[in-house]
Design a protein around this nucleic acid. Sequence first.
DNA 1: GTTCTCACA
DNA 2: TGTGAGAA
Length: 136
Amino acid sequence: MSDDLRRNMALFPIGIVMKLTDLTARQIRYYEQNGLIQPARTEGKQRLFSFNDVDRLLEVKALIEKGLNIAGIKQVLQLQDPVPEQTEITVSSEAKRKELTEQELHQLLKQQIFFSNANRPSEHALIRGELSRFFH
DNA sequence: GTTCTCACA
DNA sequence: TGTGAGAA
């Protein structure tokens, strides 16, 4: 399985994303309304975030903390990722931009867990449990 | 118990 | 952005 596919496959409920990004559910949904992220949905309409979404959320958070508004962030993200539309699973059209190696992917995962540990040491187990499916 | 949408101070 | 209501 390609790394690219894996990054778009992870499915976190909003609660986990809140812990991972330290954003409120309100903010996360607000950013989605503004097109900053495109989380998938379950049949029950609950949001399912991929690692790409979490990654983007962290960028958004960083930008917000720098004093940017939604409009400003939209521009920044558009420059980085001009309309993802839908992530096609076609083998032929993959790897147009950044391909992550196994090591880089694991490094990213470690970072996520590190952030969580720094903020809420008592919730290691929960988050690790949710992320465990990404480790082999 | 968790998340969703909508709405209001 | 926060919070609460009401539904799923």
